[in-house]
Design a protein around this nucleic acid. Structure first.
Length: 826
RNA sequence: GCCCGGAUGGCGUAAUCGGCAAACGCGAUGGUCUCAAAAACCAUUGUCCGCAAGGGCGUGCGGGUUCGAGUCCCGCUCCGGGCACCA
């Protein structure tokens, strides 16, 4: 499309200026009030896509707006530059991951600069920089020293496609890998873990203090999965030496326990299985072991496999309240990873136990009276509230009371105790990959896993490695890297060849940004206390659980191990905004789906300002957006709007009546100040789409005004205000127009205020309704009294006609906006 | 199954505290300019009845509260997302 100005030249000119003049560089001793604006650490996948554009447009708006509000805005950017794609590319093409990654970073950076997004690039960090690796490794060692990192043999999720271990969170609900889609299998390996579960309660309660989208908080709460209940030690009949420990959230139902179940992996299975039952139990265990996560959980998906599959062990446990002996089963519906890996089964009050009991002919005893008609509807487990029955000393109590009494009873008898369980598991950080931060550990035959001394950090991966699809890190095949000596005794030893999950890197980068030049420590105490917490964090909803949880954990852990000062706020991100994603043909726009629309073509045609404006205007920032064939037309519409602005500014340069203000001049000034008010409040409440709409409305108004003998001062004031309001949204064209008019820098100026006297309306349109239907509109003074409003409404000819002869039953007056004349008495 | 969102013109959407439904934009239609086209500009654009003035209807469906409901309450339908043997 033909444009009113040379978009390319103007945009590139200002991008160079902001960089050369260091407009958005900020020092730690800046006296202005600190404001930390941050977009989530991007993985460098090449040139930006529309999802990035949207994200960084919002972020840039915040940075420029808060700067104009007089803040010292910390606006850093770096790159989450470790990760699988670079390594996969290396296997495919032979290019070293560093070379590949640096090229992708250059592309992403270039396209963000071209968008006009501004950062203090002096602070840029990259996860794969040796300096960053150094501090990530130091943090690992300090967590280890404090007991927050440990090594354990654990069943892990192994993805055959990625040839690596995955965190639980990287396995989708259907048992496939979130990245490759392969079916994940279980393997036992020695792995490093971070003890995030120590912080479960604090991570849960801390959510209440945060200005985050409610749904993100809900997701985190569900993920932590706190549940209160009791742990019970069940006596095994005829085996005084063994107890079976179970967890329940329903200690009130103990009288209804008619059997117990152990997970197939439970360590006591061998112990409790009798000779006669061994064959069936072994068969079950073998089948479960060979099953994938999907197959094992498929039994809940409905269909023929709905039954709960299990086998009797031949042993019995004693119901601690009734004293009855009940059978112990092994069944695949009990998971080793939660609670104690064993349960007391109460079929009457738990649907899973119900299904299993029915299948195996086990007794079902209700301990809560179900509501009227429950049995008539076919009967099933009833897990709701009610009155206890068949429960000895609990009979007659409500469920909540009965829980308390039951726990007290267990504790008195020493058979159990109150217990809180979490769904949250410790964070598995080991990855059998090359392109990640090496774990700084040496394995010595004498001293075991020995930390690399801190003065020998960083441990860097060698460059001369071969990238082969072997399923192990290339580091494991590199003798030069692997062979070393024990730091303690000097014995020949091997380096750990696993690397860390890349979520480790992104769990502390926001702290490094505060003090990226520090070569004595990850960051200085004063710097992080000055900038933290992040005042506005912006990113995608896809990080609602993992990244945000890990970063919250790390911030706390770093304080507790002494790497961060105790004054550092324990919550790193006080305000979070999660933008909607961009969809195309129903699925998320992403590189892996191959449905990217590169911004470059828009930079070259309509320009970055128009593209930014489009992303702001198209809908609420938090909502998803569908990219369709019509989208280009909307983007061009945004370009047209900027053209109109440009032409308006040209006219305003020449225009010129002076002297006393007329009615129309005053009206325009009122509109100008109202626009300032509306746009300001829209920006504050993340309503960018309406902020743009109000600017468009003002341009339309201004265009009409400029045609009809405008007053130079009034037109100038209006245009200048508009340029300020649009400065954070369309920074290039506004900076250029401002320079033409005044010669200095728009973005260095203060955000405009409005005159409350001008914002207040003088006359308003009063709506007169008869029985709720609009019958007339009257122009009245804004200060009109209720009596006067009523009188004027009733005097309206159209109202008189609608009301008819009978006197109105009632008149509702809401001066000065509305009068409703009610004629019916009903 | 449980927990969150959402549903408004042909389309994206607006209505911030229960008070004029549809601001702003896209598209469409007609016009001005032009040899012509593009661009730009002007006008119309929820729907039905009407020459018009004007009026009826209208925010997924069914009820309710209220002088008044897109907005609040109850019961549904459909769409999207999260969790899903967590004891």
């Amino acid at each position: 499309m033909a444009r009113a100005y040379d978009v390319q030249t103007v945009e590139k000119k200002w991008q160079a200026r902001w960089q050369d003049e260091g407009t958005y560089e900020v020092d730690n001793d800046d006296p202005r009030p600190a404001f930390y604006a941050l977009c989530m650490y991007p993985y460098p996948s090449g040139p930006a896509h529309q999802g990035h554009v949207r994200n960084y447009t919002f972020g840039d708006l915040v940075v420029r707006y808060q700067t104009m509000r007089g803040k010292a805005v910390l606006s850093p950017l770096g790159f989450d530059s470790f990760g699988l794609p670079a390594e996969n590319a290396a296997i495919r093409t032979g290019t070293h991951p560093r070379v590949f990654t640096d090229a992708r970073i250059a592309e992403l950076k270039e396209s963000l600069v071209r968008l006009g997004a501004v950062y203090d690039w002096r602070r840029e960090v990259r996860s794969h920089d040796p300096s960053y690796i150094h501090w990530t490794q130091l943090i690992f060692l300090r967590l280890l020293k404090a007991g927050l990192a440990y090594r354990a043999l654990a069943p892990v999720n192994w993805c055959p496609g990625c040839q690596t271990v995955l965190a639980n969170e990287q396995v989708l609900a259907d048992g496939t890998c979130e990245r490759s889609g392969d079916v994940v299998v279980t393997r036992d390996l020695e792995q490093w873990f971070f003890k995030i579960t120590s912080y479960a309660d604090e991570l849960l309660s801390g959510l209440d203090t945060l200005e985050w989208p409610e749904r993100v908080k809900v997701m985190q709460r569900n993920w932590i999965g706190r549940s209160e209940g009791a742990e019970i030690d069940l006596a095994v009949a005829g085996r005084p030496d063994v107890t079976l420990r179970v967890f329940t959230t329903r200690p009130d139902t103990i009288f209804g326990m008619t059997y117990a179940v152990m997970a197939p992996e439970h360590p006591l299975v061998d112990e409790l299985t009798t000779a006669e039952c061994r064959a069936a139990v072994e068969e079950l265990r073998a089948r479960v072991a060979s099953e994938t996560e999907i197959e094992r959980t498929a039994s809940t998906e409905g269909g023929p496999a709905l039954e709960k599959r299990g086998a009797f062990t031949g042993s019995h446990v004693v119901n601690p309240f009734s004293g009855e002996k009940v059978p112990v089963y092994v069944a695949d519906y009990v998971l080793m990873g939660y609670g104690t890996g064993a349960i007391m089964a109460v079929p009457a009050e738990d649907q899973r136990d119900w299904a299993f009991a029915r299948l195996h002919g086990l007794p079902i005893v209700r301990t809560v009276e179900p509501p009227e008609g429950w049995e008539a509807q076919g009967g099933a487990a009833y897990s709701g509230d009610g009155v206890k029955v068949n429960s000895g000393f609990l009979d007659g109590l409500e469920v909540a009371e009965a829980k308390e009494v039951a726990i007290a009873h267990l504790e008195r008898e020493g058979r159990g105790r109150r217990k809180v369980n979490y769904r949250l598991r410790d964070w598995l950080v080991s990855r059998q990959r090359f392109w990640g931060c090496p774990i700084p550990i040496v394995h010595c035959p004498v001293h075991g896993a020995v930390p690399v001394p801190e003065d020998q950090l960083p441990v860097l991966a060698p460059d001369d490695v071969e990238f082969l699809p072997t399923g192990q890190s290339p580091l494991a095949h590199h003798e030069g890297f692997k062979r070393t000596v024990c730091p303690i005794g000097g014995e020949p030893a091997e380096r750990e060849t696993d690397t860390m999950d890349t979520f480790v890197d992104s769990s502390w980068y926001f702290l490094r940004f505060c003090d990226p030049f520090d070569d004595e420590a990850p960051f200085g105490a004063a710097a992080v206390v000055h900038w933290m917490p992040v005042d506005q964090y912006i990113g995608g909803i896809e990080h609602a659980i993992l990244h945000l949880m890990y970063a919250r954990f790390f911030t706390r852990a770093l304080i507790d191990v002494g790497l961060a000062p105790p004054e550092l706020p324990r919550e790193p991100f006080s305000r979070l905004f999660t933008q909607g994603m961009i969809r195309m043909d129903g699925s998320k726009m992403s590189k892996s789906k191959g449905n990217l629309i590169a911004p470059a073509r828009y930079y070259e045609s309509v320009g970055a300002d128009a593209l930014r404006l489009f992303h702001l205007f198209v809908g609420p920032p938090a909502d998803d957006f569908d990219w369709t064939e019509q989208t280009d037309e909307v983007i061009e519409g945004c370009g047209r709007f900027l053209d109109r602005l440009w032409r308006l500014a040209e006219v305003a340069g020449e225009a010129g009546r002076s002297g006393a203000l007329r009615e129309a001049d005053v009206e325009l000034r009122r509109a100008t100040h109202r626009t300032i008010q509306k746009v300001t409040s829209d920006i504050e409440r993340w309503s960018y789409n309406t902020a743009v709409a109000h600017c468009m409305e003002q341009v339309n108004l201004l265009r009409d005004y400029a045609r009809e003998d405008p007053h130079a001062d009034v037109l100038g004031e209006a245009l200048d205000a508009l340029l300020h309001l649009l400065a954070p949204m369309a920074p290039h064209v506004t900076a250029e127009l401002w320079e033409h008019r005044h010669g200095d820098r728009l973005h260095a100026r203060s955000w405009p205020g409005f005159d409350p006297a001008l914002v207040a309306e003088e006359t308003v349109t009063m709506v007169v309704q008869v029985d709720g239907k609009v019958r007339d509109r009257l122009d009245v003074p804004a200060t009109i009294s209720d009596d006067e409003a009523r009188a004027r409404a009733l005097a309206s000819a159209r109202v008189v006609e609608a009301v008819g002869a009978a006197p109105p039953a009632r008149v509702i007056v809401r001066a000065p906006r509305l009068v409703n004349v009610v004629t019916t008495t009903a």
